[in-house]
Structure formats: C-alpha cells, structure tokens
Design a protein around this nucleic acid. Structure first.
Lengths: 217, 217
DNA sequence: TTGCTCAAAATGGTATACCATTTTTGGGCA
DNA sequence: TGCCCAAAAATGGTATACCATTTTGAGCAA
C-alpha cells in the first residue's frame, strides 16, 4: 500500500473498513489515531477522509471529529433512487452507443455470474454483480455518467451488501440480468429499461425490509 | 475570506476565477504560487484544488501540476446529458414530493427572472436562472440528488454561461420556465418533463453552436 | 544552429509543528 | 453525593519543513 498516491490507497482501505463494518457507523474518526494506525501522516489521511466524505460514507462536522455515516432508510433510498435513475438513463445511452465489444463484456460479466450461481462466497458474488452493472454504464461511453454512477455504487455498497446477504433470490437477479443483457444486445431500450426498473424496485424492497428488521433489534 | 473553513472559501474563489476565465483553460495551477497570491498556505489550497477536481473544473495529473480543465464538446455534452437526466428525474420526484411552500419558491424564482427580462447584467440573470433550476431539484427533498445536480451545474457553469451570452433568446427561456413551473404547480409530470427535455435540447444546441464557432478562431 | 547532458530550480507529495477551539476530567464546593 | 467550573488533554485547522520526482535551462559537442 504505497505506490502512486497514498491518499487514494488510504481511502480505499478505509472504505473497505467502513463497508465491512470494521469502522462502525457513528464512530468518530480521529485524524491522528487513524493515521498512526496506518503508519502515515495526517496530511494524506485528511485527504482520504475528504474523499470518503464526498462519497457520503463519512460526515464532516465543523471543528469536530468526522464520523462514519449512519444513513437512515430515507437517505439510503434517496441515493438508491438516484442510482436507479442514472442506470435507467444509462440503458438508453448504452443501447445507442455501445460497441459490440462492450456488449460482449456485459454478457461476459453475466455469464460469469451465472457460473457463480451456487458459490458460497457472497462477497465475491456481490463484487461481480457490481461489475455487471458497471459494465453497462461503461458501455455508454459517457465519462461523467460512469464516474457519478460509480460513486453512487460505492456509497450504497454497504446497504446493498447487507441486504443482499439475506435476500436469497439469486435466481431472480440472474434472470433479470439476463433480460437486461439481452435487451442491450438486441438494442431494445424499453426491454432493457423496464427490466432495470424492476431490478431496482426489488433492490429497494430488499433494502427496506432489511432496515425495518434491523430497527427491531 | 476567513470565516469557518478556509479551503471552501479558496475553492469558491478559484471556481469563480476559472468560470470567469481569469484562470485560463489549460493553465497550470502551482500550489505554492496560488497559495501565496491568496495569502494562505499550501494545505488549504491543496484541499481546494481537490474539491475543484472533483467537480471536473481542474484536472489532477500524478506528480505534475494540476491544470484548469479545457473540456471538449464531447465532454461538455456528456455532462449536459447527465444534468438533463438528473433534472428530468427531478421533475417526477418534485411533483410527487414538493410542498406548497417549495412550489411557491420555484414560482418566486420564475417571477424574479420575468422581472429581469430586460436587464443588461447577463451574469446576474444567469445566476437567477440557475437558482430557478436548483429550486426545482430542491423541491424533491432528495439530498443526494440535490448535491449531485448542484455539482453538475457548477461544472457546466462556464459552458452554459458562455453560450447563454450569445444566445439572445431569453423570451424562449422564460416561456419554457413558465411551462415548467406551471407543470409543477398542477402536479403534471408529463408537461413538466417534456418541457424540461426541450429546454435542455435548446441548451445543448446553443452550447454546440458556441463550440463549433469557437473552433473556427 | 541543433540537439544532448546534466545539474539546478521548481513542484507536488508527505511529514511535522503550531494554534485555536472543543472535549474531557478532576477537584472543590454546596 | 452530585454539580459546576477551571485546567489539561485532545483534536481539527493551518502553516511550514523536508523529500522525491519532474521540469528547465545553460553549456557543450556535433
């Protein structure tokens, strides 16, 4: 962890800690302590914290310690709405602009997921799920869209991961991915967009259920 | 320029310099020089530069001076597409969620613009135009959307401003704003979304013309 | 004149030092 | 015993120092 830009590495490391729960929601982040722990100085640590704050994973408070974000259901679902909107918009653009090469990449990710249908490692499965969705947006060739979409994926990683672990509906996910990929390769915008919408509706429902259940604890 | 957080102030200052052209596109930004010029140290200047980079106004290069972004037509129109998509999505959400108070704010901005129809100060007019669009997205109550939309507005400020200065079609802009505001107050999603789409199509065309003409110089 | 080399200057990346404000704590008083 | 306040520790914000890499430019050779 010390190649080109240290702050980026630190941000990646801390993002993982946050998303996996090693850094608990609500916990305060002391620049000095965390920097010391990673063996770096405060300067790049500050920069990393700012990056995570921009992603919504960390909340900055004036003249106070930043804390790990603990988003309410409303905050998560707001972000989910935007993510869904971006990806639906991406469908149209992808159909219009995707090269055959890019389409086959999307299909490649889908096939990879199909082959993992019975895997136990839900983290691994989840990462590939994300790669599938990313590859669709990448097929738009719209860089700002790709970046913004990626940023929302990162921000929602934890909520999506937690809810995906309980939802045992991989079959549905895979079927929907299949329809979406098919919609792209046949350049069928409505097919692709409708299935994407439904895909996100399920995701939204899963996350909601997860939050409601957690509330009871 | 020295109240709560210095870096934010510096970023605001530099954003204005960039957007008004005081910092020319392609020009390199030396942390030391710019910090000295503003009478601050490098640390907050670095942070400010990172903020502007996140907005796409500045390009970071590893181990090199950052430079002021000089976006191509493709880059600007890609960002415009996303902005349009966000705002169209915002229409639906705003109709569903806007309070009467928020709707009257939108109308207030529209009336303000109407009253400025003959003003000479195009910068002032432009700022209020932006406020109108912002108020619509604010009416959604979706914070991530508001932030992302605001970030795209900032990023596109210069392109929109430059192209707006030559386009002498305030009448059309005002008419469309009127339709959009009416669509919101009557909770008419199609009316609002269609007019917003057309509004952005004009914007896109104006920016394209501007870029094409500039190319000839 | 042109192109190459290499050292000095410049510059971004990182670490550390200093300061102002906030938080914590502990002791004294009711 | 419990509360309040002052002092100390902690902490984020800012400035400065140091280092590695890159850029620049002068001098030299072809």
């Amino acid at each position: 962890m010390a190649e080109p830009n240290l702050a980026e590495d630190i941000a990646n490391h801390m993002r993982r800690q946050i998303l996996l729960g090693d850094l608990a929601p609500g916990q305060s982040i002391k620049e000095r302590d965390n920097a010391l722990e990673l063996g770096v100085s405060r300067t790049p640590m500050r920069e990393a914290i700012r990056m995570l704050a921009k992603e919504g994973l960390v909340i900055l408070r004036p003249a106070r310690s930043p804390i790990v974000a603990d988003p309410s259901l409303k905050e998560v679902s707001d972000a989910l709405e935007v993510l869904g909107s971006l990806e639906m918009f991406g469908c149209t653009l992808a159909v219009e602009n995707a090269s055959e090469r890019q389409i086959s990449e999307v299909i490649g990710h889908h096939n990879k997921l199909l082959s993992m249908a019975d895997t136990q490692d839900s983290l691994d499965f989840f990462e590939h799920d994300m790669a599938f969705h990313k590859s669709i947006v990448e097929a738009t060739g719209n860089l700002p869209l790709i970046e913004t979409h990626g940023s929302y994926l990162a921000r929602l990683w934890r909520a999506r991961y937690l809810s995906a672990q309980r939802a045992s509906d991989r079959a549905r996910v895979l079927r929907q991915h299949g329809v979406i990929a098919e919609g792209l390769s046949t350049r069928d915008i409505p097919k692709m967009a409708n299935e994407t919408k439904e895909h996100f509706d399920y995701l939204f429902a899963n996350v909601s259920v997860f939050y409601k259940e957690r509330e009871d604890c």
